[in-house]
Design a protein around this nucleic acid. Structure first.
Length: 459
DNA sequence: TGCCATT
């Protein structure tokens, strides 16, 4: 309840509240909030920061000053979280963007409030500011669409500050663009109306419109990608045609992993694995995902981020043709901020990597040896196994400290053997039990403890 | 099968 000491405040009842809305009863510690009767702010509204406010003035006092420029949607004096002390500044949002612009030009540095020695500050709040939340990434454009075409597409949603189509060195469009709007609201409106709304001529999938990555997200996404490589089978770097034998190998692996994860009873895994192969064969898509979800490595292994969204797995195995993205409804399922699914938005990644050409995609994995009894030597790895696959294969048995497939320096070909180190001997033993002799394609893995140091350095 | 760390 707003204090109405003298009883002079207008009744807060359901009376008419138009025009000068001094009758707003929501004024208090929490600021001036829109009551149900207050219209929504425009989608392109701007949140203003107001600085150099005398500490004696609260929302009610400030309101008349700002109402002059339009209807206020929200006005909040900033207070210290702990002490509740007035911080001398406020956030102000008008219902209309135009009001904010007027207020800014009329007030910013234009007058000084009583008791202050610097002029009032009225400008877009930092949160509106540096652009990250009003800059959009636009994917799945037609290759022949230029800046002008993109502008035409987006201009109904507001003021476009910047529009760039990403191009290869030879000038051809990469089929994506960045569009920066004047406000967050405009950007959001564009996302809502355009994302997935149509398929451009020559594009393989429907239009992608999303917030461009912030630096932070970029980093986060990179981590997710790494985690993806560790946490789910994801033979991304392989030629996509190589599905046959390789997939079979993987499925067998998955079977083994499952078996191991289910029954640490050890012993011959083969029988179980064979059964699991059938399971796997019947559900090609689901199978690769199972282990990641089903097992939590005994040692609380590294890099097991929250279960990866299905589309990664699906796309990992599928051709690079449009998947379910862009279908109405699918985006609301998966496109909620933190779980972007890389393969589903192939083009969304292109600009990222062009911005950061030397993306350290190969994890700079330190080659660490675990304690004695924790290091495995693995032979007869499939030719196409890399470090990631090796990690993946052994992750279910414990925390993998390092995994290295040896590669012929000259040919860059795997030498078909490698090392895996766990952080404890039990995991290592479990892995040996489960994986030694395990058949992959024509080969059987040889998994045994690595020879101790002094054995291979007899000097 | 081809067998134990990498620079």
């Amino acid at each position: 309840m707003a204090a109405a000491p003298g009883g002079s405040a207008p009744p807060a009842g359901p009376g008419p509240r138009l025009g000068f809305s001094t009758a707003d009863s929501g004024i208090g510690m929490s600021g001036l909030n829109p009551g149900p009767a207050v219209p929504m702010k425009d989608h392109d509204a701007i949140k203003l920061f107001v600085g150099q406010i005398p500490r004696g003035l609260d929302e009610q006092d400030l309101k008349p000053l700002f109402e002059e420029f339009g209807r206020i949607y929200e006005l909040t004096v900033l207070k210290d979280r702990l002490t509740g002390l007035h911080k001398g500044c406020a956030f102000l949002t008008y219902c209309a963007r135009d009001s904010a612009l007027k207020a800014q030009s009329a007030l910013h540095e234009q007058k000084t409030l009583p008791g202050m020695n610097r002029p009032i500050q009225v400008k877009p709040a930092a949160s509106e500011g540096r652009g990250e939340d009003r800059k959009l990434f636009v994917g799945m454009l037609g290759k022949q669409q230029g800046e002008e075409d993109v502008r035409r597409l987006f201009q109904p949603f507001g003021h476009i500050e910047e529009c760039t189509v990403l191009r290869s060195p030879d000038g051809t469009s990469k089929g994506c663009a960045f569009v920066k709007f004047g406000s967050q609201g405009e950007a959001q409106a564009a996302i809502q109306s355009l994302h997935g709304s149509r398929t451009m001529a020559g594009a393989s999938s429907s239009l992608v419109v999303k917030l461009a990555d912030t630096d932070r997200e970029r980093a986060l996404r990179r981590m997710q990608q790494m985690a993806g490589q560790l946490g789910a089978f994801h033979p991304a770097p392989l030629p996509l045609g190589a599905c046959g034998a390789y997939t079979t190998a993987i499925l067998q692996h998955q079977a083994a992993l499952l078996a191991a994860a289910q029954g640490p009873g050890l012993g011959p895994v083969a029988a179980v694995a064979a059964q699991m192969q059938h399971v796997a064969a019947f559900s090609l898509v689901a199978a690769p995902l199972l282990p990641a979800a089903a097992n939590s490595p005994p040692g609380g292994g590294p890099g097991t981020l929250p279960g990866l969204p299905a589309p990664i797995g699906v796309n990992g195995f599928g051709p690079l043709t449009p998947q379910t993205n862009g279908q109405p409804g699918s985006d609301s399922l998966y496109n909620n901020g933190l779980s972007p699914y890389p393969a589903a938005y192939p083009s969304a990644y292109a600009p990222v990597s062009t911005t950061f050409p030397q993306q350290p995609s190969a994890l700079p994995q330190q080659q660490r040896e675990g304690p004695e009894g924790c290091n495995l030597f693995i032979y007869h790895l499939p030719q196409e196994f890399g470090d990631a696959e090796l990690i993946q294969t052994f992750l279910p048995f414990g925390a993998v400290v390092s995994a290295k497939v040896f590669v012929d320096r000259a040919t860059n070909q795997s030498k078909c053997f490698g090392f895996v180190s766990f952080d404890n001997p039990t995991s290592a033993q479990t892995a040996i039990q489960a994986m030694n002799g395990f058949q992959i394609g024509m080969k059987r893995l040889k998994v045994q403890l690595k020879r101790p140091k002094d054995a291979n350095r007899p000097y």
